[in-house]
Design a binder for these strands. Structure first.
Lengths: 346, 346
DNA sequence: CTGTTAGCGCGTTCAT
DNA sequence: ATGAACGCGCTAACAG
């Protein structure tokens, strides 16, 4: 049979309440008593029943982390950073909180389903990473859900996505638009005029903002928005490869390609090499995010660095109430242009 | 106040028991009644209380996944694959199970702590990824913990680590030794005789097995084991970079470097380039794992492909009881040599 | 500082 | 096919 708190109490000759207090460390207990209790716990190999204590306390030690795809370093880095901040003192039962990582695959339905599941678990907090899906119906459903979560006392932090006004959720957004603008300005400065753009999936804030930044820069230079040299696709290598092939076919004279992110850029580089184009001599290539492998690309990738780990760590601390929210519940985190070998003069 | 099962029951004019049955779908309920109940659930925005049902049912919908570092694609890929298999029908309450990802950072203490935390949550299953730490004391403690988990009905699957005999845990191990041997054989065949080896951290099964395979191949060719050209370090880029610099200093005449994994290999490549050595003309480089970025390295990395996603998916299915265990509870998964541009004739 | 008393919300017998 | 009653194991008042 499974050993319970009462068993420990009996063995330590104290009341169940005292055992609970020792285990949670929330109330003062005499050192001698505590010692006796801990010994009993040890001797009986007792392990607290999480569901039971969550039920009684009406809160759990679970923290949800929503990601598109945990296998993608972009999300893996953020998930790891959040997790590193949710432990430590402050929680019940030793202060160890558990991270529930939910792969939404970018699906609105799964996003909502997971939030319901986390609500069911009475999660202490939820961190939602990555851009949002731009669909009015889904946005309404999502915001309603966020509202309900925050009403129930679950702290919600958005990391890398635009604010969700009136929901009680805190937002740490990346300045994707500014980053996109800076990147394209850099290329324009190098003399590029015919620039292909491999965008992310449509209907996503990240995609739209980065693209808008690109077009902002183009417009500021008096150039057309290059819509006919803009292709969309998932944030993966295959997209970059296929799109680069396509771009080369459409416009053999292009001198630069901007990719939605570093992974896509890597695919584009491969296609360029296969087509016999030298980087950056014939075609410059730029990415976004500055994922760890980007510095080791050959040539190293020019990109926009997003402080993923720092931002996610901050999101984790805010979710735990260990850092105060930004004023207005919203903060915009800038990206930083990192110029490396993959871009050069046109 | 939070709405409970009883509220739903009242609104649907049925007993709480009936609502429970509808929600869990485990007992027959008249279609009309079910309809009424579901409508009430919807109208009240009712969300099941997870802790309460876990307490009553003595089991939860949580599945633990232990990883060294979720930001490392090696682990991210496995975690994602496990998660993709733990949903679906079979569980309670809609069959959706939640993945609790635990970053151990390779620390034995954290490994044990997380297992206790998962035991506390009454996790339905636990998948432990990556190699084990070779320390008798820790191994004993770990095995005892695994034993207790399996005794309590938690299914435990080891993915990418050697079996833990007598614990009730199923093991899907990678043939790191065979992979290491094959890789070094490949280099020997290309005429390399002075080979540097950048191993992983000491005291880890993965490190030891890959290194043993390397030495097996060396021995079979009648060569010394090359201990003086073997360096240890964490599985990261910095290790690869620093070790390659060191190796070049110790043995300027070396013609090949084998790295503990692809990430380390990338760091070594960078150091080699900085030192003016061409790959593979001057020095061949090989990695291990075949992570996604390896094909895009320049030159593309020769490596040993491990079917991470497939193995982890299988681990997930076994953990859910949806696939039968391998005979004896142990399966060895082979790696596959992938020859690309980073290795050439000596 | 410690013991006593009530539930927390649900699943599951047993009846019907 | 449905209802009534009990208990899962623990925490949180309230006493003392």
């Amino acid at each position: 049979m499974t050993v319970t708190l009462a068993d420990v109490a009996a063995r330590a000759q104290v009341s169940p309440a005292t055992v609970s207090r020792v285990l949670n460390g929330n109330y003062p207990v005499a050192a001698a008593t505590r010692e006796r209790v801990l010994r009993a716990v040890d001797e009986l190999d007792y392990v607290l029943n999480g569901p039971a204590s969550s039920l009684a306390a009406a809160t759990s030690d679970l923290v949800g982390i929503l990601v598109n795809d945990i296998a993608d370093p972009f999300f893996g880095i953020m998930a790891g950073a959040v997790q590193s901040e949710i432990g430590g003192p402050g929680g019940r039962a030793g202060g160890e909180r558990l991270a529930v990582v939910c792969n939404t695959g970018g699906s609105p339905e799964r996003e909502l389903t997971y939030l319901t599941l986390l609500q069911r678990q009475r999660a202490a907090a939820v961190v939602i990473t990555g851009g949002a899906i731009e669909d009015a119906e889904h946005a309404a459903a999502l915001n309603a859900k966020l509202q309900r979560l925050t009403d129930a006392g679950t702290r919600v932090v958005l990391c890398g996505r635009p604010p969700a006004p009136e929901t009680g959720a805190v937002a740490l957004s990346f300045d994707n638009r500014g980053g996109g603008r800076t990147l394209t300005q850099h290329l324009l400065l190098l003399g590029h005029r015919t620039i292909g753009y491999i965008a992310g999936p449509e209907e996503r804030t990240t995609t739209r903002h980065r693209l808008e930044g690109h077009r902002d820069a183009l417009a500021a230079a008096g150039l057309p928005n290059g819509a006919e040299l803009t292709l969309h696709g998932p944030y993966d290598r295959a997209t970059g490869h296929a799109a680069a092939v396509d771009l080369l076919r459409r416009e053999p004279a292009l001198t630069a390609i901007v990719a939605a992110n570093d992974t896509v850029a890597l695919g584009a580089c491969a296609a360029l090499r296969e087509a016999g184009r030298r980087i950056p001599d014939d075609v410059s290539v730029a990415g976004f995010d500055d994922l760890p492998f980007s510095v080791d690309a050959v040539p190293a990738l020019t990109t926009v660095r997003l402080p993923l780990a720092e931002a996610a760590a901050r999101a984790g601390r805010i979710a735990m109430g260990r850092e105060k929210e930004p004023s207005g519940g919203v903060a915009t985190i800038p990206g930083e242009l990192v110029v490396r070998g993959s871009t050069g003069r046109a």
